[in-house]
Design a protein around this nucleic acid. Structure first.
Length: 190
DNA sequence: CCCTGATTCGC
DNA sequence: GCGAATCAGG
């Protein structure tokens, strides 16, 4: 074939496409996905910077980027691996049982953003909380590394129990409560 | 947790 | 020049 397209290496075509998409406001990851599988989002960003691009749409904004931390410490894993792995369950993890009911809007992970992206917002049932059958409920002493430790109910009440669903490897909660614990907790810092 | 861009630095 | 790893904000 006459096509000598190299999987990697920034050809003029790709650079132009990169510029175009970047200027149009596409995110780096989206551009990377459009350019090809072999292109990562970091590659796109790196190229953008080298091309002196960035900026993109920055009206009346001086980009008060935080001072580039003078961190020149070794970030490469070239040292002795530290020994660790003693994961002993200390005190029971206490999340924030203060606020339970959350409207929670989802669908924020949409990748393909169309210019005419009309989000269909719908009101989720506020009382939507996981119902755990009695035979699935766990007391404090029944918790282990694989049980969701999300407390349900009044800790002082007799019918207080823990979720008990299979917890994720990445956290002490099941998928449902893991999102509850992190997602949307993000508030403005200071 | 997800995502975003920004920066650094070994290759 | 390239991009993974990392950082920092949302």
């Amino acid at each position: 074939m006459v096509t000598g397209t190299q999987p990697n290496g920034w050809t003029d075509e790709r650079v132009e496409l990169l510029k175009k998409l970047w200027m149009e406001g596409l995110s780096a990851s989206q551009i990377a996905g459009e350019l090809g599988e072999g292109v990562t989002r970091n590659a796109v960003i790196g190229k953008v910077h080298r091309l002196k691009l960035s900026a993109r749409a920055k009206p009346t904004n001086t980009t008060p980027r935080a001072r580039p931390a003078p961190r020149q410490a070794p970030r490469r894993p070239s040292g002795p691996s530290l020994s660790a792995g003693v994961s002993s369950m200390a005190a029971a993890a206490k999340p924030r049982p203060s606020v339970m009911p959350r409207p929670q809007v989802m669908g924020a992970t949409a990748l393909a953003m169309s210019p005419q992206m009309e989000a269909e917002l719908y009101v989720a049932p506020a009382t939507q909380e996981l119902f755990i059958p009695e035979d699935k409920r766990l007391s404090l002493l029944q918790l282990n590394e694989h049980t969701c430790k999300w407390p349900i109910g009044d800790p002082l009440s007799k019918d207080f129990y823990f979720c008990g669903q299979h917890s994720l490897e990445t956290g002490p909660y099941c998928e449902f409560h893991s999102r509850r614990a992190y997602h949307q907790i993000d508030k403005k810092k200071r």
